[in-house]
């Protein structure tokens, strides 16, 4: 900004900047309001929420809703289920997708292009399009209502392979060629060169997988039959539309239980989240 600016233009620029901040702050308040209302509501007894649904601050704050959630509603178990399923999918995706991503990015082999086109096509096929045959198949494997049934369909994802291929593709070939000339096997190259250099990509993939699985709904809804196999969103949804649909305090507490852990993880690792999402959109 070394150019000379006329005083009126400078004033205009300041006004514009103030306007931008006002817009951003207002927008942020609106964006965060539902979070605040949810958290505050979870601290209210149900009667208080019914009495004045527009109130913000709890008059007699209580942790009773959370205690109920744990003691009466088994949310501890759902929480463990959610962690187990998401965790297993993270391990599967990180391991298997990076292997396949390496082959697709750095080895020239027969069938490479058709495999990659299939991965690309599958990127846009939504889960809702295949849940029926998937259910038939997983059931016939005898895995309905089991952890394996919950996990297996998402153990690898086309998105995982896509991300890893794109990232590994940017690692300079010269590094690999040097190792190959030294007689290193592909396995050794993968373990000693590719994996150490892929740290940020693996972190991104791990986080996106965890996020997706934590919030996944349709598949666990279909394949989990009994209470002890529910993940948090399934439990919350069935709870919300069933007999407890008006137990507002408990439901808001349940929503907090689903949202708060992932938001906390997000706040700690936000760089990876945002980069991960942005990189899905950039070739």
């Amino acid at each position: 900004m070394t150019t000379v600016i006329a005083p009126s233009a400078a004033r205009q620029r300041v006004a514009l900047r103030i306007g931008t901040y006002v817009l951003l702050v207002l927008g942020l308040v609106v964006t965060l309001a539902p979070f605040a209302w949810m958290m505050l509501g979870a601290l209210k007894p149900t009667g208080e929420i019914i009495a004045d649904p527009t109130a913000w601050l709890p008059k007699s704050p209580t942790l009773g809703n959370f205690a109920d959630l744990l003691s009466r509603q088994n949310f501890g178990l759902y929480f463990v289920n959610s962690i187990l399923v998401a965790g297993a999918c993270v391990v599967g995706n990180v391991l298997f997708c990076s292997m396949a991503g390496y082959a697709l990015a750095k080895i020239d082999f027969a069938g490479q292009r058709i495999l990659f086109s299939l991965v690309l096509v599958m990127l846009v096929v939504p889960g809702i399009a295949t849940f029926v045959p998937l259910f038939v198949q997983v059931s016939n494997l005898g895995l309905a209502n089991s952890y394996l049934g919950l996990i297996m369909p998402y153990l690898v994802t086309p998105l995982g392979v896509f991300l890893m291929r794109q990232f590994i593709g940017e690692i300079p070939d010269s590094l690999l060629e040097a190792a190959r000339l030294d007689g290193a096997s592909e396995v050794r190259i993968f373990l000693r060169i590719i994996l150490p250099l892929s740290g940020p990509a693996l972190a991104t993939l791990a986080i996106l997988t965890f996020l997706f699985q934590w919030n996944n709904f349709l598949w666990p809804l279909v394949i989990a039959q009994t209470d002890n196999m529910y993940t948090l969103p399934v439990a919350l949804a069935l709870f919300a539309v069933g007999a407890n649909g008006t137990n507002y305090g408990l439901l808001l507490a349940g929503s907090v239980a689903v949202v708060l852990p992932i938001v906390t993880v997000f706040l700690c690792l936000q760089r990876y989240f945002i980069q991960g999402i942005a990189s899905t959109g950039i070739k």
Binding site: S139, G142, A144, N145, T226, N228, L238, G242, A243
Partner: peptide, 21 residues
């Protein structure tokens, strides 16, 4: 005894029968 919510329970039984679990 395993508890199943009334909500959606019909789908749960049908799928359990169908899948042999």
């Amino acid at each position: 005894v395993t508890a199943v919510p009334w909500q959606d329970y019909a789908k749960k039984i049908e799928t359990a029968v169908a899948s042999g679990s």
